[in-house]
Design a protein around this nucleic acid. Structure first.
Length: 514
RNA sequence: GGCGCCGUACCCAAGUGGUUAAGGGAGCAGUCUGCAAAACUGCGAUGCAGCGGUUCGACCCCGCUCGGCGCCUCCA
């Protein structure tokens, strides 16, 4: 039985969907005005995994993830560049798909945009005004927090406490300092839509209420996002939605922890973030492998805990994955004793049960991965006893199937280097995966940071083609056959210096990897 | 000022009021190997920031202290 930690109640609760066999979930997406960083990746990944696991356990999942495509930051960016807001949002939605695609994050069932839901938004605002929960001031509409009694229940805050800590100057036109905008009248040159209050655009929070209600209904199962959205975003969503419908809005609120750098939250304002694309571009490994390394790293920690991003953690993820893919490689090789066969299924069963138990416990991916490690170890032992072709196929399939919940183990071949065909090898120095401590987004001014190579321990990238390597390997095995071990070792050393590792098999042939 | 989180071995990281405190990475030793690599085996916290308290018993509950962080403003 799946249980989920609910931010609203602060407790683990058994999960029961509103409609049997169907889960309706909504995740707050991104404001599309810049490239995504790993923090965005974590959030997207957490909900991707939740969705995958729910499907794995037999639910049909209706998953909505929005794009915020009308916003101050978008307008600002468009003005800076002298282009339309549409051009900005189109560019960064495209970039979003590219970045998230490289991480193996599946698209949601529905990915609505705020600009395409103006009618629903306006209608919702009207309802709130009619119900006396919102008021208009000169073309702006505000939600009146004092009129919504449970306000603060998600973030566990009292209105008085919020006021006391308010760091922002108060708009005198508001009836209460914490009242927030549902509709903003537009200034010159800003995108605007006709409304009963004149031309304007929606406030940030209202779009999610409008879109989630439209696509998932007035009450749905799961809603989530990063922890920083708890207040004010989700608090306000609850006020708007429950205020308008009079019904329960969301049954389980899920919030993921932050990605940090050097123990600090990674954020735009601190300038200490890593853009997803920069990591891919600077990675010495191929895209698919890099994506899997990132996933493994991000899922190695429970989703509600903070986790520190560094080259070192990425390298650890890679080393851990090596173990799995080394096994998968051996599972593909022929060798047909079936001595260990009868013990395989019990081992797999044990793993399946433990894996589900872990995931059922508030999506404990960390433990789930540990269980896969245990199975890896079990299968390794059985393999040395001998597994039949069929048994090896079953074992590989099991890793693929359980791994699919986490988006891991789907690659056929795990390799560490791209192979530019026809290039000659030279001993170019290792290029670090991440060149700079800080990655500048396009709106950041370059700072004179000392470049800090972060992956110095990695091996140099190989520049041989597969065929070139195979020729060398064949040559070495010929030498071994002749007992010319001096030559054989020379070849091994040569390839090793180019990041290629040879593993001799008992039958006199060798496998190699980069 | 208000609300809240975290501190587990060299590193990452689970976890439970009471069997030997998961798992991974790195390291060391051994088996295997022509040599390696991989795999396998063994080694590694008598202790879970510190100090008190509750309890028959706490790393897990409570309090205090130290250290780190987050939200209260756009933020995944």
């Amino acid at each position: 039985m799946l249980s989920i930690y609910n931010t609203l109640t602060g407790k683990n609760e058994p999960f029961e969907s509103l409609v049997p066999k169907i889960v309706r979930m909504y995740a707050c997406g991104v404001t599309v005005y810049d490239y995504c960083h790993i923090g965005h990746a974590r959030s997207a990944l957490v909900f991707d995994v939740i969705r995958r696991y729910l499907e794995f356990t037999g639910y049909q999942v209706e998953f909505v993830k929005n794009f915020t495509d009308v916003d101050d930051k978008i307008i600002k960016r468009a003005n800076e560049r002298g282009v339309s807001c549409d051009a900005i949002t189109a560019e960064f939605i495209e970039a979003y798909y590219q970045d998230m695609g490289r991480l193996g994050i599946r698209r949601a069932t529905i990915e609505p945009k705020a600009t395409e839901h103006m009618a629903e938004i306006i209608e919702l605002v009207q309802t709130l005004i009619q119900k006396g929960l919102a008021y208009e001031v000169a073309g702006d509409v505000y939600f009146q927090v004092e009129k919504y009694q449970p306000y603060g229940s998600l973030s566990k805050r009292k209105l008085e406490d919020l006021q006391a800590g308010a760091r922002v100057e108060v708009d005198e036109r508001k009836r209460h300092p914490m009242d927030f905008a549902l509709w903003k009248s537009s200034k010159q040159g800003e995108p605007s839509w006709e409304s009963p209050w004149g031309p304007g655009r929606p406030g940030w929070h209202i779009e999610c209420s409008a879109m989630s209600i439209k696509h998932l209904g007035e009450t749905f199962d799961i809603h989530g996002g990063g922890m920083d959205l708890i207040f004010p975003h989700h608090e306000n969503e609850i006020a708007q939605s429950c205020g308008a419908t009079g019904k329960e809005f969301v049954r389980y609120w899920i919030h993921n922890g932050f990605v940090q750098v050097n123990q600090e939250k990674m954020s735009k304002s601190l300038g200490n973030f890593f853009a997803i694309r920069e990591i891919f571009e600077k990675s010495r490994w191929p895209e698919a492998e890099t994506g899997e390394m990132l996933r493994y790293f991000l899922l190695g920690t429970h989703y509600r805990s903070p986790l520190d991003f560094s080259d070192h953690s990425l390298l650890e993820a890679k080393n851990a994955l090596n173990g799995f893919y080394d096994l998968f490689t051996r599972l593909k090789e022929s060798e047909d004793r079936g001595t260990g066969d009868k013990e395989l299924m019990p081992a797999i069963e044990r793993c399946k049960v433990a894996f589900r138990e872990a995931m059922d416990d508030d999506f404990n991916t960390s433990v789930a991965i540990a269980e896969l490690q245990r199975l890896k170890s079990d299968v390794n032992k059985l393999l040395s006893q001998g597994l039949s072709t069929e048994a090896r196929r079953i074992a590989r399939e099991e890793f693929r199937s359980l791994g699919n919940c986490l988006g891991l183990f789907q690659l056929d071949k795990w390799q560490f280097s791209q192979v530019p065909v026809g290039q000659t090898a030279d001993l170019s120095p290792a290029s670090p995966i991440i060149m700079r401590q800080k990655v500048m987004m396009i709106d950041q001014v370059e700072e004179a940071d000392t470049p800090q190579p972060m992956l110095s321990a990695a091996k140099p990238k190989s520049e041989f083609s597969d065929t070139q390597v195979q020729l060398k390997v064949d040559e070495r095995n010929e030498a071994r056959k002749q007992k010319d071990f001096k030559k054989a070792d020379e070849i091994r050393r040569f390839l090793s210096s180019h990041g290629i590792v040879i593993e001799d098999k008992p039958d006199g042939t060798s496998r190699w990897k980069r």
